[in-house]
Design a protein around this nucleic acid. Structure first.
Lengths: 348, 348
DNA sequence: ATGAAAGCGCTAACAT
DNA sequence: ATGTTAGCGCTTTCAT
């Protein structure tokens, strides 16, 4: 792969093999590589005339800076590693879209990984992300393995934990209190006159935020002087099938609950399906509440009472926080509580 | 940030500032950087003894190779750029999870971007991906802008188009025929004795695969000698709200259809909700069919007839195809038709 | 099997 | 404002 070296003649390079480098652009524009680099990186530090010439030459040659080389030289890659539990739910999808929506235009790419609520896999993903010297790393939740924690603490970039807020985050946290969300649902159901409550949680052993909601739910019931709610723990996460099974078990008990809260709207949807089959009236016979405020919750028959987490807002806030810190490396982490919203509808 | 240079003493480096480089590991292990590089990159080319020493020293120092530097030096980054329309539906989520599930263990990271079915945004995402010199790039669908097409054609890496198969893909294609899927639904409904058909499509102007299904649906109806199906095009994609509105419009018409196919299960779910409200019996009064075989389709009341696309299989097949080509750079693109499955249930 | 040395393509001091 | 010159931390010939 022959290539003209040194102060080349300002000719167009032959088509074909070999990538176009800054050196080539510099030669054609009649400037140094530093100027070309500046014209792209900090346009204001280059005179309008030269900037024009550089950009024009670059355009003519079809030059695209190698972000790999740029990252290595500047010791910072415009990558943000994002680690979420799953790519299947619209929850994290919303957050990712909001995140990418702000990060993309700012020139940052997302490197995404998912771990199915497995802390060991999270560990591997965090390590893999860190290997790229990312500009920042975003993880989900406030609970991590020892190794993840120390890797994150050692990281030379901003670290944000999202979807849950803890008192002492590693660096920054953006989310809301899942426990409070659980309490809010219980209080709402209790205010509706229900006394025998139940909670159905999907994969709470691994999904610690669902577990936190369940915990808050039970707490609030006890504080209100009600009998301890029955808690059904499902193996799977968020499936209508799980909701159907749990609903059936609960309603077939000697003393069926008067209200059931689910850790996910899909679970509640399953209960709606099963209630319809059984002729159980919602909310007359039993009140139902979900979590997530997925699109169908507002349109089901009956419409579903649920909790709306700040999915998009989390993504936007994380992005804004990071962009601010990229601009001002002096800025530190912060805790941003975005809250949640209880959406009372017909089901309970 | 002081750092010992030259042939250092084989001491442990001081804690704190500065990253551990191969040079440090080499010094401690008493070998050259080349050997350290080989010990990590091609372990078989290093004697067992030295390999052990290198790995041990690396471990002791907490050394992690800079993949940025490695990528630059070898001119290939272990990144796969993946561009999907959306991160909100489990369709692409499934594919992404399957893809990451195979690519991750092989040492490749996914760089994900979404474009909301906007070909211009796809163009930008493809360009941004290419800037990283990825090992491969995966895009969704077979239709792209001129610029995207030429950028992809010029790319020095495998390019795979997924979720649709075309006769002449840019390089490789993994998916199924959306048009055939539409035809299959129509044939199924017709076989059930329905003659007045309708199709409800979400955002078909942009979601070209949904449009292809609609086209196939209409074609099959005409071929069967039926009157041309009414086609309702919705602005939004896949919402129960849209399904409700379309169902209402269709059923309020002078001659309501005997069967309705939707471009998405959520649309059909909305119709189910609305039918329940109106007391319209499914499938007695009107048959309903969806697309996607989302989890709830098997559990709704009534259960939903739908088409199951090979979401996971697409991800796995794309990953396998790529991994094969990474091993054997001589291998070329291929067209992999994974088919789809019509799942007949109670709704139609 | 191992080492020496030359880059990979760019950024960032440091000069001018 | 622009150019010169070191690297960034690896991989990879090419020797030995």
């Amino acid at each position: 792969m022959a290539r003209a070296k040194g102060s080349g003649l300002p000719e167009l390079r032959a088509t074909g093999g070999g990538r176009v480098r800054m050196e080539d652009v510099a030669a054609v524009a009649g400037v140094s590589v530093a100027t070309v680099s500046r014209a792209f990186g900090k346009p204001d530090s280059v005179s309008p005339e030269l900037r024009r010439r550089v950009l024009e030459s670059a355009e003519r040659l079809g030059f695209r800076p190698s972000v790999l080389a740029g990252s290595l030289a500047s010791a910072r890659a415009r990558i943000v590693g994002v680690v979420v539990p799953s790519l299947l739910t619209s929850f994290f999808g919303m957050t990712l879209e909001a995140l990418a929506g702000r990060l993309g235009p700012a020139g940052y790419q997302m490197m995404v990984g998912h771990h199915e609520y497995d802390l060991e896999r999270e560990e591997a993903l965090v390590a893999a992300s860190l290997d790229w010297s990312p500009a920042a790393i975003v993880v989900t939740g406030a609970t991590h393995s020892r190794a993840t924690l120390s890797a994150l603490a050692r990281a030379e970039c901003p670290v944000v934990e999202m979807w849950e807020i803890s008192e002492r985050p590693i660096d920054a946290a953006v989310g809301f209190s899942n426990r409070e969300a659980g309490r809010a649902v219980a209080r709402h159901l209790i205010a509706g006159g229900r006394r025998r409550l139940a909670f159905v949680g999907g994969a709470m052993a691994r999904d610690l935020r669902a577990a936190a909601r369940g915990q808050g739910f039970v707490e609030a019931a006890l504080e209100a002087g009600l009998p301890e709610p029955r808690v059904e723990v499902l193996e799977e996460r968020s499936s209508t099938a799980g909701g159907i099974a749990a609903f059936a078990r609960l309603m077939d008990a000697d003393e069926p609950p008067e209200a059931i809260a689910f850790s996910n709207d899909f679970l509640a949807l399953g209960a709606l399906f099963e209630a319809q089959r059984r002729g159980v009236r919602i909310p007359e016979d039993v009140a139902l509440a979900g979590y997530g405020d997925l699109e169908f919750a507002a349109n089901s028959t009956p419409t579903l009472t649920t909790v709306r987490p700040p999915h998009r807002a989390i993504g936007t806030a994380v992005a804004d926080h990071l962009l601010r810190r990229f601009e001002d490396p002096g800025a530190g982490g912060e805790i941003i509580d975005l809250g949640f919203e209880l959406v009372a509808r017909a089901s309970g």
